[in-house]
Simulated scan of single mutants.
Amino acid sequence: MTYKENFIRFMVDCGVLTFGDFTLKSGRKAPYFVNTGNYKTGAQLAKLGEFYAECIKENNIEVQTLFGPAYKGIPLAVSASVALYNKYGMEVSYCFDRKEVKDHGEGGMFVGKKLGDGEKVVIIEDVMTSGKALREVMPKLIGAANVDVTAMVITVDRMEKALDSDLSAVDQAYKDFGVKVYSIVNINDIIDAIRNGVVEGKEFLDKMLEYRDTYGANKL
């Protein structure tokens, strides 16, 4: 299997990707759901980091520091930085933000690598629905130093148009910030995995296709 197929099976085995009838935060009725909160063991996190590392390597993404937005992004950035070293011998720093600025000790907004001007930073997140996380962290990163945000890496691109735009959150992020978002897999990869028997769920295939046709975003 390809690493994308392996990742889809990994999500299903971890209970992160499930099929059925779900109401999303947007109000849309979806035949699948991605709940990254179901990653909960060291073994799962180590494996997840390897998939992030493979996506970074495959796409030749330039990176010096991985940034994990608090709170869910913190273990993701850590696991990805460890995997990049273990798998590819790449020594990459990591950092994350605090929800509140520390007013004692060394103080500051960030923990981990101190960012410098020109530093190539990659943001590590789980999924991207509206692009809210990127809009929140970009001012923090640019406020810390004149960094070069070379990419954002997520696990699943739903490829859905936003509620107020015909573009997907991924394409909107590029339009608004010039940040290219890479995903380990997207909805088309998941549909292909069902169709090819990589994971079970063929009874949901027609609903998956219908959902994609209804909410699929236009491309830039």
Rank of each mutant, 00 (worst) to 15 (best):
M1Y: 12
T2S: 15
Y3A: 05
Y3K: 00
K4D: 02
E5H: 11
I8W: 05
R9D: 00
M11S: 05
M11C: 13
M11L: 15
M11R: 08
M11K: 11
M11Y: 03
C14E: 09
L17K: 10
L17N: 04
F19C: 04
D21I: 12
L24K: 00
K25G: 04
K25E: 13
K25Q: 05
G27W: 02
A30M: 06
A30Y: 03
F33T: 10
N35V: 05
G42K: 14
G42F: 15
Q44P: 11
L45Q: 06
A46I: 02
A46T: 06
L48W: 09
G49P: 13
E50N: 14
A53C: 13
E58C: 05
N60H: 13
I61T: 11
I61D: 02
V63D: 02
P69D: 05
A70C: 05
A70Q: 01
Y71H: 04
K72P: 06
K72H: 13
G73K: 03
I74Y: 06
A77P: 05
V78L: 14
S79V: 10
S81M: 11
S81I: 02
S81E: 06
V82I: 15
A83E: 12
L84F: 06
L84A: 12
N86D: 15
K87G: 08
Y88T: 07
M90I: 00
E91Q: 13
V92F: 01
V92Q: 00
S93H: 06
Y94N: 14
C95K: 00
F96S: 09
V101K: 14
K102R: 02
D103H: 01
D103Y: 00
H104V: 07
G112N: 06
G112T: 06
K113H: 03
L115H: 08
L115C: 09
G118M: 03
K120I: 04
V121M: 01
V121I: 13
V122K: 08
D126L: 10
V127D: 14
S130N: 13
S130R: 14
K132H: 14
R135C: 13
E136M: 15
V137I: 15
V137E: 13
M138V: 15
P139C: 14
P139W: 13
K140D: 12
G143M: 00
G143T: 00
N146M: 01
N146G: 10
V149I: 12
T150H: 04
D157L: 07
D157A: 14
D157Q: 11
A162V: 01
A162I: 07
A162H: 00
V170K: 14
V170R: 15
D171I: 04
Y174W: 12
K175Q: 14
V181P: 11
V181Y: 09
Y182V: 04
S183Y: 11
V185D: 07
V185R: 09
N186K: 04
D189L: 11
I190F: 08
R195P: 02
N196D: 14
G197H: 08
V199T: 01
F204T: 01
D206S: 13
D206G: 02
M208P: 01
E210V: 03
E210Y: 06
Y211C: 05
Y211H: 05
R212S: 12
T214A: 12
Y215V: 02
Y215A: 03
G216F: 04
N218C: 07
K219L: 15
K219G: 09
L220P: 15
L220E: 05
